[in-house]
Simulated scan of single mutants.
Amino acid sequence: MSILITGADGYLGWPTALRIASQTDDRVILVDNFGRRNWVEEIGSVSATPISDIETRIEAAEEVHGLSNLSFVEGDLTNKDFTDQLLTVHEPHTIVHTAAQPSAPYSQINGERANYTQHNNLQATRNLLWGLEEHDLTDTHFIETTTTGVYGAPEFPIPEGGAVMENQGERDDVPFPAMAGSWYHLTKSHDAANMRLAHKQFGIPISDVRTAITYGTETDETAADPRLATRFDFDYYFGVVSHRFCAQAIAGYPMTVYGKGEQRKPFISLEDAVEGLTRLALMDPDDREDDHVVYNQVTRAISIVEMANTIADVSAEFDLDVEVEHFENPRDEDETHKMEIENERYMNVIGEQRQDFEEGARDILGTLVEYDETIKAHEDRFLPGVLTE
């Protein structure tokens, strides 16, 4: 019996792999092509936390946590022959699919990167879904981290997946329309549709986990040894807004809030995201709500300015003098949008929130003060000027 984790070298995939492996005797197969490392290097940045190579990580996992059930396979899931071989050799009963080019800004740089993002993300998912059908593995639970970005920013509360449409007096439940705002986010809208079709045609059980903006530097497992650290990106292209704010605080720059910053975005801590994926991966089939479920992987919506002010307050605990400054917004967005998003299904999975944003900011800053030289050496990657390149 085996569990397959794609994108297992990444920010979310690696700590998820560690937690799953610590809670099962099944073989946990890690798959990656090290794309994230290459993309970040390409745009001239680096992970703030030093990240070990995969061999060192696995050795440390066994030494520190006693995990002898981790194996690694290097390969590109857009290659159908590789994907077919992977599935036929390991015959996973569960796939946690976190592999993707995850950056909206990267996908917007030019047409080449937009094309790459769409091909990479969609082809990998299609190869996995069709591979399960073609190799008689349609009982495999397919869990994918998509994104809350597929919803856009509607004025009404965002449901957990579906919507109700009414026309000429008739009502029906329909999939939420794709309202993505970037070429990356649209790949996840297409993935959601492809997973729905694979469930309908092949009967594959699907958990579409729509992941919110994720913050944090560590989980219990990764914090146990520096060799187990997950990556932490802080640049404009791959670092989420909360991570960029923390990097600015460490480097002694004001936090750059674009526009009013009153718009709310969905957030979740790394700890809460890892816990949910782990519970879904190890859940007994009889305990799953249905064979095709959408989860909003979010604990709360936070405004950008609230987030900046929270980080500024916590920064004082580390003797950092941080200010919040507003800059002209380069994005076309409603700067006062009060997002509401339902998350009852996901909260039922994890039970309760494990880390709120203030605690997360404290953990992030506590980690980053150790790597301030790395951050200061790459400050051109997160200051507003990078937007004009």
Rank of each mutant, 00 (worst) to 15 (best):
I51M: 10
T278N: 06
E359D: 15
Q85R: 13
T83H: 06
V349R: 02
V369C: 02
M307G: 10
E323Y: 07
T214I: 14
G216Q: 04
T98M: 13
A100G: 08
L86Y: 03
N127E: 04
E262G: 09
Q123A: 15
S68T: 13
I95L: 01
S45V: 04
S22W: 05
G366R: 00
N115H: 12
G161M: 03
Q118P: 04
F234R: 00
G351C: 00
Y151T: 01
V322L: 05
R126H: 10
P159Q: 08
I58W: 05
P159L: 05
N194G: 08
D9E: 12
L67Q: 01
T138A: 04
R300L: 14
L12P: 07
A223I: 11
S52I: 04
E271L: 10
Q248H: 01
E91K: 01
E62A: 05
E335L: 07
V293E: 03
E317V: 00
L129R: 10
A180T: 13
I143P: 06
D172L: 15
R19L: 09
H65P: 09
A124S: 14
P154Y: 03
N343W: 03
L77F: 06
N343Y: 05
P50E: 10
M179I: 11
Y237Q: 08
Q263G: 02
E289I: 10
A361Q: 01
D286E: 14
I311A: 03
A153L: 14
A249M: 02
D225P: 01
G131M: 01
R300Y: 15
N110S: 12
E41W: 13
D53F: 07
L137W: 09
A178C: 10
N79H: 13
G169L: 04
I29K: 04
P285H: 13
V314A: 02
T336R: 15
M283V: 13
E62V: 04
A223D: 12
G35T: 12
E262H: 09
N110R: 06
P285A: 13
G66R: 00
I58A: 03
N167I: 15
V241F: 06
M1V: 15
I204W: 00
P226F: 00
A104N: 15
Y151K: 02
H199R: 03
L4I: 14
N296Y: 04
A229K: 06
N69D: 06
F327Y: 14
Y253Q: 13
E323L: 07
R231N: 14
Y11W: 08
Y106R: 13
D380I: 00
Y237C: 05
I375Q: 02
G75Y: 06
A163H: 10
Q263N: 10
D290Y: 11
E306W: 15
T374F: 08
S2V: 11
N120A: 14
G75W: 04
N110I: 04
A163E: 01
T310F: 11
T147I: 06
S269Y: 00
A100C: 12
D235R: 09
A60L: 09
D136Y: 14
K338H: 13
I268W: 13
L77G: 02
V31E: 05
Y106Q: 10
T145D: 04
P157I: 11
I109Q: 09
N127M: 06
V164F: 01
E160N: 06
W183I: 06
G169P: 08
S269K: 00
S45L: 11
Y258K: 05
S2G: 03
M339L: 15
G252T: 08
R210T: 07
D208C: 10
H337Y: 03
E41P: 08
P159G: 09
T230S: 14
